[in-house]
Write a protein that binds this DNA or RNA. Structure first.
Lengths: 138, 138
DNA sequence: CTAAATTATCATATTATCATGATAAAGACA
DNA sequence: TGTCTTTATCATGATAATATGATAATTTAG
């Protein structure tokens, strides 16, 4: 569903949000904890920083931090940097005219499904993915 | 959403279903009409024939035909040969434990969305995609 | 039997994604 | 200032998806 790169980005942001503390986290630590190649992760984090999702600091006390609170960070903000999310909403067969009113019944149904996917990424936040093990009944 | 290959396959099957007639259609004609590289399309059609979606005939009067009526040919039958459709239903982050009851609220929502995508491909037929321009009101 | 037309198959090229390794630039602190 | 740690950047390799070109195998028709 997501490219490898987008999934790594998501997991990295989740890790930062989960760590909670305000101190910067180093690439090395994240790469080890998430089992992602360090230089590859480094490039991904850099892209996230350029997009203002993270902030980075160089030097001895450097590392990466969230730039925004997890509650106001939609998954789409992250994924969009690596995957073309809106592409999914176009006609399944690449027919250009299916975007407007001439679409057939099946394509209308497809757009409905694709729209739900899009809404999920736009409305789900990083914070939503953090609340795991939610009061499991025995 | 779909790989290039799966989209080509879908469009090729649609073309065959649309042509209607029972005579085999040649790769060259389809490749030209659909603007798909001929040898690439040839390999895709061969895969579809091996999967019993199409039948093929060699020789002078050869070509490809649908093996089944469009009404009973689900899109999933075609797409599954080229894309891993069920992959989409697993946890967004690759967390293995999210398949069972321990999934968090967000993952449950994701599985719901992914399930709708899956149902679309399983229940929509080739015939559904054929009925275009359906009695447009002015 | 021969020739023409077509699918089937193999070999290879091209491109994008995924990943690794090495070096440069910058901040922290003694 | 000088040194250490870290991010930033560049160069390269590995793998899979996409695409092309050439040849073999098969069928039809004369």
């Amino acid at each position: 569903m997501l490219s490898q790169t987008a999934e790594y980005a998501l997991r990295a942001v989740l890790y930062l949000a989960d760590s909670g503390s305000d101190q910067p986290v180093r690439v090395g630590e994240m790469a080890r904890a998430l089992a992602i190649p360090q230089n590859y992760l480094s490039k991904i984090l850099h892209q996230l920083a350029r997009a203002r999702v993270l902030t980075s600091n160089r030097g001895k006390l450097g590392g990466f931090r969230l730039a925004v609170a997890p509650e106001s960070m939609a998954l789409a903000q992250i994924v969009v940097l690596f995957d073309r999310l809106d592409e999914r909403r176009r006609c399944l067969l690449g027919r250009p005219q299916c975007s407007d009113g001439t679409a057939c019944a099946a394509h209308t149904r497809w757009k409905d499904v694709a729209e739900r996917v899009s809404v999920f990424f736009r409305e789900t936040t990083v914070a939503d993915l953090l609340q795991r093990n939610p009061a499991v009944p025995v």
